[in-house]
Nucleic acid binder design. Structure first.
Length: 480
RNA sequence: GGUCCUGUGGCCGAGCGGCUAGGCAGUGGUCUGCAAAACCAUCUACAGCGGUUCGAAUCCGCUCGGGACCUCCA
């Protein structure tokens, strides 16, 4: 792999050289969350994957406009209706609650906020305009106040299924009987506009009925509004590939005549007990439960940055299974890498290097340029960590220039690209100050070889949940 | 049923035609008042069967597992 970025494009089914439409600039859209319940960890993996991609593009000196929507209307409607009656809440109150919660969780995972985070309800007019356009082109029809996309007609000129690799005949043979199908000409047709039933609270006027936009329309409206008719990257979870993204392609082509996206990226699922995490099946764990340890699935609590690091040790296109054993293994590796990062600050440079530092740092780029291969990047970072430890123990040496290079690139990849944060045991609070005093007293005792006092302090702190570790440089502590 | 993905050492997880992935655990060392930690070194692989090839974990076929989508889902 050369030093240029190659990305696996679902549309092509292969890795290809990435070339933005405009030199040096990238438009990226990612399907965001539906905010009628808490985001679960599976959702988070997708957003963390694309945050990593966003970060690497920024690191590669691209100017990126990153748009990620909030789904607060449309296909959220049905679930909201029931919940609203039950809780006596306004729909937008639910939306607000879970949007805030979503942002909190994203922040804990150290995800950058997107450049624009548009809400579906704020773009009803744009969606109606697209429906009108597709109707004008004759690729949609009105039926009983609703408007449907005519898939079979579209397929005569275009290829419905080009993204997901499906054939319209196969799709037809596999359809099932569902409610409301009688309004459609074909079971494959999907709604662009839905007439609201009496029980629906969220509704907007339109030329066809009081209703709400169809399932897939918001992403088409918001992505093209902020990024143009054709933009560079569209991302989302693998489960959205069909029908959601397939329909976006169809809508885009139907309304503008152009393929809306050059590179389609799909992040794979997070599984729990070998099964996909899913709201509907209840096979989920919430981020908060994971961080607090308050759950029946994991053995202990895990810090958000450790969870993020764990995810970075797998490729974004691979299914990743979540388990306590795997998390704990990652946590230890994380500590090892962070120790090396800290060590790097105090390492001394010399006149020459005993290893190829430039090859090492270039391997970081090679890994990421190969379809954002974070597990390989992490492997190379561990190689770097071993070298740092060898320099420390005198088994290896590094020149001043190479040391600066290594510091610069390691910090860039660990903190900026992977988005990992250091885990400070100290919080800059009263406990911190008190521990300084306790450890100073213990240090005095140890200098007097008063092991009784020294061990008493260590043992009692252990009982209190604070672990003290001695090393040549002094004692450190951490609380569980 | 249709479409597609996948099966790597004790565990997690890269690689996808020839070159040590990496992490955790295990084992052996170093360090240390003790403890813990840390550091260094190191063993165990490519689901099975057949084929292509000078050479296959990597390509092809079959068999047997696992999973996703086809219905809201990241």
């Amino acid at each position: 792999m050369d030093s240029q970025l190659h990305i696996y494009n679902t549309l092509k089914g292969d890795k290809e050289l990435f070339k933005p439409i405009t030199e040096g600039q990238i438009g990226m859209y990612v399907c965001g969350p539906t905010v009628y319940s808490d985001v679960h960890l599976g959702n988070c993996r997708t957003f963390i994957s694309f945050d990593m991609i966003y970060r690497y593009l920024l690191h590669s000196n691209y100017k990126v406009r990153y748009v990620r929507n909030i789904t607060d209307a449309g296909h959220l409607e049905a679930s909201l209706a029931g919940k609203t009656r039950l809780d006596q809440l306004e729909p937008m109150e639910i939306v607000q609650k879970y949007t805030v919660g979503f942002h909190d969780v994203m922040g804990m995972f150290n995800n950058h906020p997107p450049s624009i985070e548009p809400a579906a309800t704020g773009h009803i007019i744009e969606q109606i305009e697209i429906v009108k356009t597709i109707l004008d082109k004759g690729l949609a029809y009105e039926s009983n106040g609703s408007v449907y996309f005519d898939v079979e007609k579209f397929n005569k000129e275009e290829n419905y299924g080009e993204l997901s690799g499906r054939k319209i005949e196969d799709l037809l043979s596999g359809t099932r009987d569902l409610d409301g199908q009688d309004e459609k000409r074909s079971p494959l047709d999907f709604a662009l506009w839905k007439k609201a039933s009496d029980s629906h609270i969220m509704r907007w006027p339109s030329p066809w009925s009081d209703g709400f936009p169809g399932w897939h329309l918001e992403c088409t409206a918001m992505s093209t509004k902020y990024l143009g008719d054709t933009f560079d990257i569209h991302g989302g979870g693998m489960d959205l590939k069909f029908p959601h993204h397939e329909c976006e392609v169809a809508q885009g082509k139907a309304s503008t005549g152009k393929s809306p996206v050059n590179y389609w990226l799909h992040a794979n699922m997070l599984t729990l007990n070998g099964q996909k995490m899913s709201k509907s099946t209840g096979n989920t764990i919430l981020p908060g439960e994971l961080f607090s340890g308050d759950n029946d699935i994991m053995d202990k609590a895990y810090h958000p940055t450790v969870v993020r690091f764990f995810m970075m040790q797998a490729h974004y296109r691979s299914i990743l299974d979540f388990s306590s054993a795997a998390l704990t293994a990652s946590e230890k590796g994380f500590t090892k890498l962070m120790n090396a990062m800290a060590e790097l600050e105090s390492v001394a440079g010399g006149s020459d290097s005993s290893f190829e530092v430039k090859d090492l740092t270039e391997s970081f780029y090679a890994a990421m340029n190969d379809d954002f291969n974070t597990p390989v990047l992490v492997a190379r970072l561990f190689d770097a960590a071993t070298w740092i430890n060898k320099i420390k123990s005198g088994e290896a040496s590094i020149s001043n220039a190479d040391l600066e290079l290594l510091k610069k690139e390691m910090k860039a990849f660990v903190f900026d690209v992977l988005g990992i944060r250091t885990l400070d045991a100290s919080g800059g609070n009263e406990l911190d100050a008190a521990m300084d005093i306790v450890l100073e007293l213990r240090k005095n005792a140890r200098e007097q070889k008063d092991w009784g006092t020294s061990d008493l302090i260590r043992d009692r702190l252990k009982d209190a949940g604070i672990t003290v570790k001695d090393s040549a440089e002094g004692s450190t502590w951490s609380s569980n």
